[in-house]
Design a protein around this nucleic acid. Structure first.
Lengths: 247, 247
DNA sequence: GAGTGGTCTAGACCACTCC
DNA sequence: GAGTGGTCTAGACCACTCT
């Protein structure tokens, strides 16, 4: 009769305090030791309760410092505005159309790799054939928020600035336009899951927490040829996705 | 130097076995007791490793039965096709444009409620003023996969079939069209997080797992008035989101 | 150094499925 | 009933921040 479970009891009490305003944005939660005393549970149970609130994005924890009520102000990624021809046609960056802080691009690596099956199928090349890979990370104030890897057919990219780390004003899509393969339409496929270990490391996510959006975008030119596949992994606490479209 | 952590060690070994094909789709993983023996860890550590794989959507667990490699075949939610005027104009349901199993709609509740702030602002009514609320759940083979609540101004909905549980062919949007307020454009805002307790219950998600997409859609008519706000909560294991748009 | 969050051992008990 | 996953107590130790 004592209720469903101990960790649930602790989580519910803290959640109510947060949503009820007793614990304001940025306030520190009671320490694990305090929760142990107050609720008569073990540290693991108290931690379990905190972890649940963290997954709900109500709380962030800092190792050695405490757990805090999370103020949640992500970047809004505004589609299709961010990918409109008008934008990159005039030398603007995609991110200029998003709201919130403007991420920095770092760790750009351009290479030729053998296409994994999914990429090969999308680009219409044979599996194992070489394609161009452009990978990079995005940081907001030194915090990594997104990983991104673009794949393009070598036949398009070779001998163009697409193989440079800096693709110039308007970026990759402007360069595709220069060679007569301007993107005419996009398809984005969105999933959500926990990050794989390599992604967790690259995004510097805490060991046991963290969710990512996995977005795969395909760009098609006027002839309806797929000219780019972009695989992105985004920290869900850093991004909100917005899509506008007509009826 | 023995490596990062015990639970990570177990998770990595199992993940490698799954991705390497030694554990095929649908295969049962070793039991917790077996993992305890094999890796010399405690049950909680073994469970922690399994939970990590579950969050990565590689594994599903069934209480009392075991942990299994997950075959992942979600519904693809195809926008904007599913919301095109052509569809509901001809009496089709939104879901007819999605791929995969067709969910059943159950538990439809229509009521008049006082608008929460966010809804009131979007619909352009005063906070606390009454609006129409239409909530329902979607099931695939008796498994709940989505919660959905639509909010509309009472001035539009009253005296129309919108207040019926069955809104008829083409649904809500066709009825809005009947009264001269056909949706002309939509905005969807997507976030990902763990479900709140009430959502967890309604979606019948396991106590400690489960991720949801939170999608808020606003529909605007030709006069650019917001005529509906739809708040949806989707089990991320059941859905993939697809958005197509021009450059 | 004191206080904090993070991980772990060892073992108990409960809830669920039927391998 | 046997075997399984799920939750918990009690206590240790480590890593991190500086409240």
């Amino acid at each position: 009769m004592a209720g469903p479970s101990e960790s649930r009891r602790v989580a519910d009490a803290l959640r109510a305090a947060i949503l009820g305003g007793e614990l304001a944005d940025g306030a520190r939660l009671p320490s694990l030791a305090a929760l142990v005393r107050e609720y008569g549970v073990t540290t693991d149970v108290a931690r379990h309760a905190i972890a649940a609130l963290r997954a709900e994005r109500l709380v962030v924890t800092r190792h050695g410092a405490g757990a805090y009520v999370s103020r949640f102000t992500p970047i809004t990624r505004r589609s299709p505005a961010r990918l409109s021809r008008d934008g990159w046609g005039q030398g603007q960056a995609i991110q200029d159309h998003d709201t919130g802080p403007r991420p920095r691009t770092v760790d750009i690596v351009v290479s030729e790799i053998r296409a994994p099956e999914m990429i090969a199928v999308a680009l219409g090349v044979r599996v194992g054939q070489k394609v161009l890979s452009r990978s990079r990370r995005f940081l907001v104030e030194d915090r990594p928020v997104q990983l991104s890897t673009s794949f393009l057919p070598l036949s398009l990219a070779r001998g163009t600035p697409i193989v440079y780390t800096d693709t110039g004003p308007g970026g990759l899509y402007a360069r595709l336009a220069d060679i007569g393969h301007a993107p005419a339409r996009f398809v984005e496929v969105v999933n959500a899951r926990a990050p794989h270990p390599d992604e967790r490391e690259a995004l510097e996510l805490p060991t046991t927490t963290g969710l990512v959006f996995e977005i795969t975008r395909r760009a098609y030119d006027d002839a309806d040829r797929c000219v780019e596949v972009n695989q992105m992994v985004l920290d869900t606490t850093a991004y909100t996705l917005e899509y506008r479209f007509p009826a």
